[in-house]
Amino acid sequence: MVLAEQPGRGMLLGAIGVFIFAVTIPMTRLAIGHGDSPQLDPLFITTGRAAVAGLLSALYLRFTGAPWPTRKQAQGLFLTGLGVVFGFPLFLALAVREVDAVHASVISGVLPLATAAVAALVLRQRPSIGFWACALLGLALVLAFAWWRGAAGFQAADGLLMLAVFSAAGGYVSGAGLSRQMSAEQVICWVLVMYLPLTAPLALLNRPQHEVSLAAWSAFAYVSLFSMWIGFFAWYRGLAIGGMVRVSQVQVIQPFLSMLLAVPLLGEELDAMTLVFALAVIAVVWIGKRMPVEQLR
Rank of each mutant, 00 (worst) to 15 (best):
L79G: 03
A95I: 03
S37G: 11
A156I: 12
I253M: 15
V18M: 08
L113V: 03
V281F: 15
A156M: 12
P197H: 15
I241S: 02
A152F: 09
M182G: 01
L261P: 04
W217R: 03
I25S: 00
L178Y: 06
G243R: 11
L90W: 08
P255N: 09
H103E: 12
V223K: 09
I230V: 15
R49D: 03
F44Y: 06
L160D: 02
D271M: 14
G65S: 04
G87Y: 13
W147H: 13
D100A: 12
G138Q: 05
L205Q: 11
L56H: 04
A101P: 03
V2S: 14
V96L: 00
S167L: 04
A203W: 10
L77C: 14
L296A: 11
D100Q: 10
G54Y: 05
F88I: 00
S227V: 01
L113P: 03
G130M: 04
I16E: 10
M27A: 14
F233A: 06
A151P: 04
M291L: 15
R9H: 08
L59T: 03
V96H: 09
M11I: 07
I25A: 03
L113Q: 11
A104H: 04
A114T: 01
G54M: 05
H34Q: 12
V245L: 14
W68Y: 06
A117Y: 07
F88W: 11
F78T: 00
L257D: 05
V245M: 15
Y195R: 01
L121H: 09
A216V: 07
K289Y: 13
A116V: 13
V263G: 14
L3M: 10
M11E: 07
R71I: 03
A146K: 02
T24I: 12
V187Y: 09
S248G: 07
S248C: 12
G150L: 07
S128P: 00
Q75M: 01
F145M: 10
L43N: 08
M11T: 03
I16G: 05
I20M: 07
L196F: 10
S37C: 01
L111C: 11
A157D: 03
A157I: 08
L79K: 11
A146M: 02
V252D: 02
G87N: 10
L204G: 00
G243A: 12
R207M: 10
G14N: 05
S224I: 11
L204K: 12
D158P: 06
V285A: 11
G8Q: 07
D100H: 06
L59F: 15
W286L: 07
Q249L: 12
R207G: 05
L205N: 06
R62Q: 14
A114W: 05
Q209N: 14
G153E: 04
E5Q: 09
F19G: 00
V191P: 03
S179N: 07
L143S: 09
I32V: 14
I107G: 02
V191W: 11
I282D: 08
A157M: 08
L261D: 01
P127M: 06
M273Y: 10
A116N: 09
Q186R: 13
